[in-house]
Design a protein around this nucleic acid. Structure first.
Lengths: 109, 109
DNA sequence: CCTTTTTATGTCACGACGTGATATAGTCGA
DNA sequence: TCGACTATATCACGTCGTGACATAAAAAGG
């Protein structure tokens, strides 16, 4: 799948997908991602097992992540270059939303 | 519906819902919202008619927005106090995501 | 040693959501 | 009058996150 179709499919990204890809800048397995996301969101976001394993399978098929190591009880993934491009586009969008959110706040204070 | 259930239902908010509520800090009708969102996102986000009218009906039922004026060919809506509370919670979340996005960027530059 | 908790992955039904097509109709300028 | 724009509504479709259920190995604790 070429980068244009990936951009259309993945941007805007769901919060879940964003934090999964963010976690995979270091090689991690599914369960490790769940714990890492809980950590950096200070317990606010707790991903369900269906979300994680379904999303990981989908992302691997799309070439957004790749298998880093396949151990007995752990499948370790890592983000690909295509995945990094998606993150850059998503971060641009987040900056726009953040900018509009701040402008909103200033209008009501 | 009490504020706790509304928070659970609306936060995290979809980008669409966020921009609709943002637009309704001034009274606007459906079509006006579509044009306003196109404006503040510089044409990036163009809401479908199904999205707008479906979402407006849902939000009105939930007490997040209210009918400001009911003209012949325009139903004008406005955000409620409950809606403003949701926006505050959503903006807190956006700030967190933005913070983590910036931290990600710095790790790859 | 046995039991409980934690780690780890997978599948499935469910409800919610955004999209785009289709339909309908009034307004306004050329 | 005729097309472009304004304005709303409904529907099928595909996608997504959730939580329940299932399975099983490893680690911790008594």
């Amino acid at each position: 799948m070429d980068i244009q179709k990936l951009l259309k499919k993945y941007v805007p990204m769901t919060e879940t997908a964003f934090y999964i890809l963010l976690s995979l800048t270091e090689p991690r397995h599914g369960y490790g991602i769940i714990k890492h996301v809980e950590e950096i969101t200070v317990g606010r976001l707790s991903l369900g097992s269906g979300t994680i394993y379904g999303t990981l399978t989908k992302m691997q098929k799309d070439g957004v992540i790749t298998v880093f190591a396949d151990e007995q009880r752990k499948t370790v993934y890592e983000i690909t270059d295509a995945g990094k491009q998606l993150m850059q586009a998503e971060i641009r969008r987040i900056k726009e939303v953040h900018h509009n959110a701040i402008a909103f706040e200033e209008g009501f204070s």
